[in-house]
Design a protein around this nucleic acid. Structure first.
Lengths: 225, 225
DNA sequence: GCGTTTATTTGCGTATTCATTAAATTACAC
DNA sequence: GTGTAATTTAATGAATACGCAAATAAACGC
């Protein structure tokens, strides 16, 4: 076994992790402003690592640095959602196609299969939080199997940006029965090494999800999250 | 007329611009390491703005911060090129489709048309540098017409990452006659508001370009740039 | 002469200090 | 009482200072 190189976790790293958590949990609500010095005190470090972390998160689209206004947590509009889902549709479909080209054996696909099984189980129990977590796992594992590190990085970034919004719509949407069927189809296309079918099915899956979410936001007049 | 708000250009901004230039021009060669203090002296500022700029450029994939090794300019491998071209293919094809859906009038398409004309003119004079500049303009204008800000940001980032490599292959490849024909096809599909055709043509264009470049790198045994 | 251990140097990560500039508040005139 | 100008406040942007960890050099034992 390879000995794990335990990376020295710097304050900047801690700040990134912690700020992300605060944003996702809503403790730093969308649209709110926060002074660097406040955040520094809150996380128990000086402004320097906070600034570096904020710059990193800014480049990932989670917040914005505005002179003399502090960092602003970026709200997500329906238009943003459309943009992000379009990107996810394209890149995940590519990943599905590439994954199917690899002729993966069943052992390589265990994580993907487990994610699907977990979603089914969660759906039976109507446990939406667990379902969402497994859904995340399915999509990120799919992208990993696609074998393109840049696609991985970009889709992870986009998923982060819609995380808050998804948490809201999760309890407004119908039970994701269709989603689970979609996932099984994509899985089988990959297992049977049918790239075109994997791509098409996943594209259809993502487009359905996009239209459903955008419809929900529209109907509930949610202009930003 | 709206009065232009002249942004105060910070040292960090200058550092970003200047470091990008140094990387693209090859003055900071791929794979080389540079101490933060050296770069600070070179650009006539302290380490602080250099570090912030480096973090930004790191998140854009141009370089890497390594403790006690300074910043390392990331080299591009053929595998990186494949990844990046795959991403560009997907997202630009999406942009072409969306652009065609807008039913743009001729006035909206002047910049795109001009880029094509400039490429033709440059090709006649065998002026490859000018051709490459106009080609860049075509692709970024195409993406702009697609109307997705995130696609714009991502494709700009990916283009930056392959910029050095493209400068090398530019003079190894055959004259880009096929490329110019491709561009005209995509343009007409957009002008005629034929989304599916715009997407398909642009995808084919990008896939051809990818295979050509990867073939060149392979034949010339270029493992990293 | 070679390997191992110790000492020294070096460069980053972070804190602290300082300067700059936008915002806010107050004072004053009308 | 309202609008404007001057002054104060405050928050960022940047420079500097410093401690610690890693890399390198040196010294010692074998």
């Amino acid at each position: 076994m390879k000995t794990q190189v335990d990376k020295p976790v710097s304050n900047t790293d801690r700040a990134i992790t912690e700020l992300r958590r605060l944003v996702f949990s809503g403790e730093l609500p969308a649209g709110s402003d926060h002074l660097e010095s406040e955040l520094a005190e809150r996380l128990g470090m000086s402004r320097t690592p906070i600034r570096e972390a904020a710059r990193t998160l800014e480049s990932q689209g989670l917040l914005e640095l505005r002179a003399r206004k502090g960092v602003r947590i970026l709200p997500i509009s329906p238009e943003d959602m459309r943009e992000i889902y379009d990107v996810l549709t394209e890149l995940e479909s590519l990943a599905a196609e590439r994954a199917a080209e690899q002729s993966y054996s069943a052992t390589h696909l265990t994580d993907l299969a487990r994610a699907i099984a977990d979603m089914d189980a969660a759906l039976d129990r109507q446990d939406l939080d667990t379902w969402a977590e497994a859904d995340d796992r399915f999509h990120s594992e799919l992208v990993r199997l696609g074998g393109n590190a840049r696609v991985m990085a970009i889709t992870a970034m986009m998923s982060d940006q819609v995380r808050r919004a998804r948490a809201v719509t999760l309890f407004m949407r119908p039970l994701p029965v269709q989603s689970n069927e979609d996932h099984r189809g994509v899985f089988e296309a990959i297992a049977k090494a049918d790239p075109q079918r994997a791509r098409d099915l996943h594209r259809a899956h993502r487009e359905r999800a996009r239209d459903m979410i955008l419809g929900l936001l529209e109907r509930h007049r949610l202009r930003q999250l």
